[in-house]
């Protein structure tokens, strides 16, 4: 639907965005790849030459690698399960007729707008602090000993904080999907005598399948690289060192850039595996 003239204008106007993103992707990526094959210790001698695949094997071989993979999986998996399950329930609930629906909606999505450092600090101090936190008070009120959340139940705590941040996202997207469900279909099912459970199982859930997939994929990509929440709360201690955080420590804290870069390459590959699935869905949607 266009002429030659508008096509060349279009190419010209697209150029800045494409060139910038291409640079943003290729330059650091090439550097990371390069460093990952070097023995590179900026504070202890700088670039000490080729390392081959040494960094890659050492990164995997280090004692903190597998625990970090486990921590990553537990956090991502835990948050995904909590946000998707609660998100579906909340979406169905918010779709019901009620008074003040708009306000409830606002209350529910508010956590998404809180900057990660604020939510991490507020939870850490005002709720999870074993002495002055609100939880400690509640526990004492019921005669239980206060829990040292971020050391004794560090994973659960982080999962809880992150879930609180991401629940609004899941809810909002699932609510949008629920609202696009054809109400005549549901009414027909009701006329056919389907109970709420069977309506949920046979109509609502299949309808939500796409939205759930999208929530899972997008959240996975963001959750794989959560940083501030761990940086502010445990600093990677008490078994909460995720893969991203491990790489961050290797690169900036211990300044072993070669090793960290090899880790970075692993992280990029991991994220890309998830990304491919997401792109497929988004791409299909583009054709429609």
């Amino acid at each position: 639907m266009a002429t030659q003239q508008s096509r060349s204008a279009a190419r010209l106007m697209m150029a800045p965005a494409v060139i910038l993103l291409l640079g943003w992707m290729l330059v650091p990526l090439t550097m990371t790849l390069w460093f990952s094959f070097r023995k590179y210790l900026p504070l202890r001698g700088g670039d000490l030459g080729w390392a081959g695949f040494d960094n890659y094997t050492r990164f995997i071989g280090s004692s903190s690698f597998w625990p970090s993979v486990q921590a990553t999986l537990v956090i991502v998996g835990g948050v995904l399960i909590i946000t998707v399950v609660l998100g579906i329930i909340l979406a169905l609930l918010l779709d019901q007729p009620m008074w003040g629906q708009g306000i409830v909606r606002i209350l529910v999505i508010a956590p998404f707008f809180v900057m990660p450092t604020v939510s991490a600090l507020v939870w850490k101090n005002m709720f999870m602090d074993p002495v002055n936190g609100l939880f400690a008070y509640v526990w004492k009120f019921f005669g239980a000993a206060p829990v040292e959340w971020l050391s004794q139940a560090s994973m659960q705590s982080i999962i809880m904080i992150v879930s609180w941040q991401w629940l609004p996202f899941a809810t909002l997207i699932l609510l949008t999907a629920v609202q696009s469900l054809d109400s005549e279909q549901l009414e027909a099912a009701e006329m056919d005598g389907a109970s709420f459970l069977s309506r949920f199982w046979y109509l609502i859930l299949p309808h939500l399948a796409r939205a759930i997939t999208i929530v899972v994929l997008i959240q996975t990509i963001f959750l794989l690289s959560i940083f501030a929440e761990i940086f502010v709360t445990t600093g990677g201690a008490f078994g909460t060192k995720t893969l991203s955080y491990l790489i961050f420590q290797r690169v900036l804290e211990s300044q072993n850039v070669g090793l960290g870069s090899a880790g970075g390459v692993y992280a990029i590959i991991l994220a890309n595996i998830v990304a491919i699935f997401l792109m497929r869905i988004v791409g299909k949607n583009l054709d429609a």
Partner: peptide
């Protein structure tokens, strides 16, 4: 408004740059 055969690929590629884990390119940027 001037879609071509490559428009979809360009859009998806742009999206893919968003999915690059930041920590993977932290040191180069630094």
């Amino acid at each position: 408004f001037v879609p071509s055969k490559r428009t979809k690929d360009i859009l998806l590629w742009m999206l893919s740059t968003k999915m690059l884990p930041a920590v993977g390119v932290l040191y180069p940027i630094y």
